[in-house]
């Protein structure tokens, strides 16, 4: 059996013919295996969904409990056989519940990474490199210019700015699943004990993170329906990136816009967004993590998907690893 018989790309997404299932399909299908809860990977309306407990819960929070016909919990590290194909979920370190999916048949193992990162994250289980024949890697930050600094350093920049500009509300744009909770957890690790104010879109997910044992400290809604009082000057407000430029942000005292994203590495992107304080904090692997992960899996073949495929393919060629871009439609850039 060659690798393309085991997994191939179809308009709906990555498909396994012998197991008759899709991984992260972008359209409704009969059977879907889902790596994590971000909406471009986890869509509603599938016949059956297999995912980690947390991912199933997050989909339930986002789409309502009837988001799929049947749900099956995948336990990390436990192998399940689906129509003769051995399937195992392994932690991916991307967001709470995120997993890589290993697919194995006739002695051939392919690992689909989903989205992943290698740097430490107090809000989710760490990525584990899985030995495989073919590694399907994401490439969101697949250019050698993307090097994410230590997130603790970025958080210290935010705290410094808060001391320099204590009269300004610091609004941190952060994607509502994963990034927002990570930023909050990092602030707590850095010793910030004040109440953090959150946009309404984050409330349920923050509560869910706390339920699963990720402490986030004192949180308050940033805005309350029918009430005009805004958080005190000098507070930290965490909101989805789209809310920052929105009229929503006007109610705060002289807002200072911060944005937590790997894209903030590039000055032009920072300027385009009108960000005053960029925080280079990403839930995706940077270039060094991507290349290290390819090596760690020992894969002899790499398929590169959603992102800047060509540079990573080039790197594989330079390092004697066979590689090709895998074109899958429908996935978005981080927080864009």
């Amino acid at each position: 059996m060659n690798a393309r018989q085991l997994l191939r790309s179809r308009p709906e997404g990555l498909y396994c013919p012998s197991g008759d299932f899709f991984i992260d399909p972008v359209r409704p299908v009969e059977r879907a295996l889902i790596t994590h809860g971000h909406s471009d990977h986890a869509r509603a309306g599938h016949g059956a969904v297999m995912a980690t407990r947390e991912t199933l819960d997050i989909m339930g929070l986002r789409y309502g409990t009837g988001f799929a016909g049947r749900m099956q919990e995948a336990r990390l590290g436990e192998t399940v056989t689906v129509n003769g194909v051995r399937v195992t979920f392994h932690p991916a370190g991307h967001v709470l519940g995120s997993a890589q999916i290993s697919v194995e048949a006739n002695g051939l193992r392919i690992v689909a990474s989903g989205d992943y990162k290698r740097s430490r994250d107090p809000t989710c289980a760490a990525f584990e490199p899985i030995t495989c024949d073919v590694f399907i890697t994401e490439a969101t930050f697949g250019l050698p210019v993307f090097t994410h600094p230590d997130p603790a350093h970025e958080i210290s920049q935010l705290l410094t700015s808060l001391k320099q500009f204590p009269e300004r509300t610091h609004i941190v744009g952060a994607y509502s699943l994963g990034k927002a909770q990570r930023v909050i957890a990092l602030l707590r690790e850095a010793g910030y004990g004040e109440t953090i104010y959150i946009h309404g879109a984050l409330a349920r997910l923050c509560a869910y993170y706390e339920e699963t044992g990720v402490p986030l400290g004192p949180l308050q809604p940033a805005t309350v329906e029918g009430k005009a009082d805004a958080p005190p000057a000098g507070a930290i407000v965490v909101a989805p990136p789209s809310a920052m430029d929105d009229r929503w942000s006007r109610r705060f005292a002289d807002p200072l816009s911060c944005f937590a994203s790997g894209w903030m590495r590039i000055r032009q992107r920072v300027r385009q967004r009108g960000v005053e304080l960029p925080l280079i904090i990403s839930d995706h692997a940077d270039w060094d993590e991507l290349t290290a992960s390819i090596r760690d899996t020992g894969a002899s073949e790499v398929w590169v998907t959603h992102g800047r495929e060509e540079a990573l393919v080039r790197w594989c060629e330079l390092n004697g690893i066979s590689a090709r871009p895998l074109h899958l439609a429908g996935y978005e850039d981080e927080a864009e």
Partner: peptide, 22 residues
């Protein structure tokens, strides 16, 4: 690698910045 440099410079658009990052 010059190919990786070109991809990066194309994306970043500023020589000093590309050099500093890559």
């Amino acid at each position: 690698d010059p190919v990786l440099f070109d991809y990066s410079y194309d994306y970043v658009g500023d020589l000093a910045e590309t050099v500093s990052l890559i």
